[in-house]
Nucleic acid binder design. Structure first.
Lengths: 199, 199
DNA sequence: CGTTTTACCTAACGGACGTTAGGCAGGCAT
DNA sequence: ATGCCTGCCTAACGTCCGTTAGGTAAAACG
């Protein structure tokens, strides 16, 4: 019944990691302290030695989810490359964080909207930081004349991140290659799917 | 506390409609029979006159969600128009069904992956029918030479529907115009966002 | 008018929930 | 050796869960 994602040496980290995958799969209300504890080979009461409440676990899981994907994308964007390559790389980084590295980012995507409002609000700042990272990058591209003049950056960012996050619903990293997926998405988004461009 | 979406004359329909919006907001496990009943001005036990179990409500909500969006998109695709207009229209139909008409489609998108496996399986067939509707349309476009040869229809359909469904996370139909949103999405997806097409 | 059916109710069942209080074993410093 | 701190445990609290059994008032029907 021990169901954890990657390496997690300390008990506290193991609880967070386990909670993330459970939240991701069963939703916020569908995961009990007893189930989290059971998956960590503990008893429910012991969780309160590390965390004050279920909601505190939740807040930490949600924030870690954004922080991890933020760090991965930011690292890619720091290196110099062509606009197409940077877009490809940033998309690949987001997808790897979402689909492979851990369940924190996927848990955030899945349960963000069904979490109690105070919890959601306390994670908004971290979230906005990630949005700003993308807007900055896309703004650079536009300033450099690499984007169509008539595409709105915010609209595209929302569509892009939405499309990436939605892969969670169907993509299985054991069956497909995340990097290939990223390349396909980057190509379709950058160049469109129509044979000829028109209005 | 009466929280229902649109017109729903019979009690049974009102229960389904109410359940859909509650499931959408709070997740599957986050909605109790007592809360559903309360929002319908009933007592929990009375729900069992209309439905055998919570899971039966869930199955009907999930299936209605797909059936409604399927009907809306199919109606649009029946009329003759240019490829760009048909794509725009189909996207608009999906978005209207998702964001405006009722909570059934949005509930499906939000909770499909956190529902008990038997329930999920019993709604797979309806889901596949909707995917086939899109694949048929996109196949026509490709056969007519309107799509780039190197875009994979299944990949694009997954990206497209994912992007559309993800609007649920941020778009508020009281603040923005769904048809405008559809136009922007259709344009970005059809033509891409880069100033010049490249590899 | 009597009877059946419809659509709801109340009350309760066993169990799971988040959380807390108090205990206990082992490592640490003094 | 003694006492504190860490990290877990058990047991219980009050509440809520899905579901069921049995009742009741009104409408529909013969």
């Amino acid at each position: 019944m021990t169901q954890d994602t990657p390496a997690a040496d300390t008990t506290r980290d193991r609880v967070l990691s386990t909670s993330a995958s459970l939240f991701c799969r069963y939703g916020y209300a569908g995961v009990s302290m007893r189930k989290i504890a059971q998956c960590c080979d503990m008893k429910a009461g012991s969780l309160y030695y590390h965390f004050a409440s279920k909601d505190q676990i939740l807040v930490e899981v949600l924030n870690l989810g954004i922080e991890k994907v933020h760090a991965a994308v930011a690292a890619v964007l720091r290196v110099d490359a062509s606009p197409a390559d940077r877009l490809r790389g940033a998309i690949a980084a987001h997808l790897h964080a979402l689909l492979e590295y851990s369940s924190f980012t996927s848990a955030n995507v899945r349960i963000f909207r069904q979490v109690p409002v105070p919890v959601r609000d306390s994670t908004l700042e971290v979230r906005r930081g990630y949005e700003a990272l993308w807007d900055g990058f896309l703004g650079e591209l536009k300033a450099g004349g690499h984007l169509r003049d008539d595409v709105d950056i915010r609209s595209f960012r929302l569509m892009l991140i939405g499309a990436l996050n939605a892969t969670l619903e169907w993509f299985d990293p054991e069956l497909g290659d995340v990097s290939e997926l990223a390349d396909r998405y980057a190509d379709m988004l950058a160049n469109g799917i129509f044979a000829e461009r028109g209005t």
